[in-house]
Amino acid sequence: MTYNTPHSQTTLADLQPGQSGVVTQLYSQGPERRRMMDLGIIPGTTVTVEMTSPLGDPVAYRVRGALLALRQDQARLVSISDVSSEAEK
């Protein structure tokens, strides 16, 4: 993939199981970006890590009530803020 997320940003790929974050920006373009947005991953959406597949990639995220598997190279292109873990909520 040719897009890049600035290194300083926390992304979906940094979340651990049980942790949530609020989407701030999508760094992908084209069909990839559209698909993510159509699935409800847009700035302001809260995303929670539900589980990791046995080989570590992909990871399943809870997004607006649905469970979505994203590969890590997709997750790295979604920056987030307000990371919290389940216990705190």
């Binding site: 159509d38 699935l39 409800g40 997004v63 607006r64 009530g65 649905a66």
Partner: peptide, 9 residues
């Protein structure tokens, strides 16, 4: 009905 928000799009 269990995933209304996602479906309303």
């Amino acid at each position: 009905a269990t995933r209304l928000e996602r479906n309303l799009n």
